[in-house]
């Protein structure tokens, strides 16, 4: 523990000796990680929404916007006559928009979007004996066959639609994660190489007086991990500020859970560790090969 604290202190010293390079590196790492965090937040919220929808037992029957009130009422009465149906409730397009406004906590949404794009919807509650997924699927297909019905969604279908979206976000997340790792390694590579070059004379002295490879490298590796963690925390701070601002517009938004935060910070530290190990090793070997002061 004492050794860890010593090397952490040495790592901080390395960064303090090159403040401009350190700030530049933290900024670059922070910017890359902010994008990653944003996607993590998005996927977590889509996942949460998906879970909530999975629990809904009713069907949403989206009607053709061209239908008039008489035709809508006729469809509603016809569906209500089904033996498997307990209740059919009409949600008009205006009510639907108000509902979304309330859910998002954004009363001016109608003005923002201009013309209301939502259709009238019949919310169908199945009878208890017809509420399982297979019965709902049969009913959904039956409703879809009626003229004037555009689409029928129920829990599983919502989930499938959201799963598709979630899959896209997750792929984007993985891609961003990979690119972020690459970008961090490149930023670390440049920064640590600079730190190593600035310390070339000191490193040469250390080697001559008997410093082990680990002792020579550890402060730089610590500096790399610290750069990543500070960049990661800065990005997290910005995300939290952005989240607080957005939450007033969308109260349903959830911030990253504790396990996600721990996973994120652990991942950042791990990338910092591995990236630093590689780049410090490469930088020092390059100096040695160049035949400079560090030559063995």
């Amino acid at each position: 523990m004492r050794a860890f604290l010593f090397f952490a202190g040495e790592g901080v010293s390395q960064l303090r000796r090159s403040p401009a390079a350190s700030v530049a590196a933290v900024t670059a790492v922070g910017a890359v990680l902010f994008v990653l965090l944003l996607l993590m937040l998005l996927s977590q919220n889509i996942l949460a929404l998906s879970e909530r929808l999975r629990e809904r037992k009713g069907l949403s029957v989206f009607l053709d916007p061209q239908l008039d009130q008489t035709q809508v009422s006729a469809l509603r009465e016809r569906f209500a006559g089904f033996g498997e149906i307990a209740e059919v409730r009409l949600v008009t397009r205006d009510e639907a928009l108000r509902g979304i406004e309330e859910e998002l906590g954004s009363p001016g949404l109608a003005e923002v979007v201009g013309e209301n794009p939502l259709p009238d919807v019949l919310l169908v509650t199945p009878a208890p004996h017809a509420a399982d997924a297979r019965e709902l699927d049969v009913l959904a297909r039956e409703f879809e066959a009626y003229p004037g019905v555009d689409d029928v969604l129920y829990g599983e279908r919502w989930v499938r639609a959201l799963d598709h979206g979630l899959g896209v976000v997750r792929r984007a997340n993985a891609l961003t994660g990979g690119l972020a790792t690459l970008a961090i390694v490149l930023v670390l590579g440049n920064t640590l190489r600079l730190l190593v070059l600035m310390r070339e004379e000191q490193l040469a002295i250390m080697k001559v007086i008997g410093a082990t490879d680990a002792f020579v490298r550890a402060p730089f590796v610590m500096a790399g991990i610290l750069l990543c963690l500070i960049g990661g925390l800065v990005a997290l701070g910005f995300l939290r500020v952005g989240f607080e601002v957005s939450r007033s517009l969308m109260p349903g938004l959830q911030f990253l859970s504790l396990p996600m935060l721990l996973l994120y910070l652990g991942g950042v530290a791990l990338v910092g560790l591995l990236g630093s190990l590689v780049t410090v090793e490469v930088s020092i070997r390059q100096l040695e090969r160049r035949g400079g002061m560090l030559q063995l």
Partner: peptide, 23 residues
Amino acid sequence: RQDLPHLRRRCGMVFQDFRLIKD
């Protein structure tokens, strides 16, 4: 390579230009 630091600790080095760490 791992033995080298141990050898160097058995040989104290003194240089013309002192080579003290400046800061």
